[in-house]
């Protein structure tokens, strides 16, 4: 029920966001039409991080409370997170081409996102190479904790490493109010999408576990 409500809300906000991006908001910066990709890139990057924070929280709770449902949450969030991270990287490349003339550049935020992607990947690698399911879940939780602790250090070192590039538009404070509005709407819309996907994935996972449990009882 709650999920359907969320789906409806998400649908409405997607329509609104699309209208805002493609019809309502004027092209503002000297980048031209390319700037509109920000309205996708910013929410994707935000969700890549948010999903990892949720994975971290789920992992800590799983290790402390030893209840499978926290692992379901952590794992589902990681699955969605790696998709968003991948999309962020692709959009980054598409954006870099017209702006800097290359598909890939070791810009600080792109580099950090790339490293995050590899940490997400290792989260799934330990799971699939563990000797049994439970150990895999514990190992993955450890990776998530170590990975999240690493994120600020990665951000700091990559930023310093590339020198002080212009900080994100939003933080500079001179972003046009129209742009900011559309950006925030888009972030909100995608966050709704994330929560919806997360609830869906967790409930599927719960059902799978229940089926497994019943099968086991039968034996």
């Amino acid at each position: 029920m709650k999920r359907n409500l969320l789906l409806a809300l998400g649908f409405v906000s997607v329509v609104i966001t699309l209208y805002l991006i493609f019809v309502w908001v004027p092209t503002i910066t000297e980048m031209g039409i390319v700037e509109r990709i920000f309205y996708l890139m910013v929410p994707m990057g935000w969700l890549a991080l948010l999903a990892f924070v949720v994975t971290f929280a789920g992992s800590v709770l799983f290790l402390v409370k030893k209840q499978d449902r926290w692992d379901f949450l952590a794992r589902s969030s990681a699955e969605i997170g790696i998709v968003f991270t991948t999309v962020t990287l692709f959009i980054g490349a598409i954006w870099a081409k017209p702006i800097w003339g290359v598909w890939w550049t070791w810009e600080a935020r792109l580099t950090a996102t790339m490293i995050l992607w590899f940490i997400y990947l290792s989260y799934f690698v330990v799971r699939s190479f563990a000797t049994d399911e439970h150990r895999g879940a514990v190992f993955a939780a450890v990776v998530a904790i170590v990975g999240l602790v690493d994120v600020p250090i990665i951000a700091l070192s990559t930023t310093l490493w590339r020198g002080m590039h212009p900080p994100a538009l939003v933080f500079k404070g001179d972003i046009a109010p129209e742009m900011l509005l559309v950006m925030l709407t888009s972030v909100g819309t995608f966050t709704i999408l994330y929560v919806f996907l997360l609830m869906l994935r967790v409930s599927v996972r719960r059902d799978e576990a229940e089926v497994q449990r019943l099968k086991e009882l039968d034996r």
Binding site: F118, I119, L121, F129, F139, S157
Partner: peptide, 30 residues
């Protein structure tokens, strides 16, 4: 930490670098 972890997996030699290298990138850069 990762050595102990990967020793309990099925492919120690493969798992360890995948875990270890991304995490140490900040100090590698530094």
């Amino acid at each position: 930490l990762f050595s102990a972890l990967s020793a309990n997996t099925r492919a120690r030699e493969m798992v360890l670098p995948v875990l270890f290298l991304p995490i140490v990138i900040p100090i590698l850069i530094s």
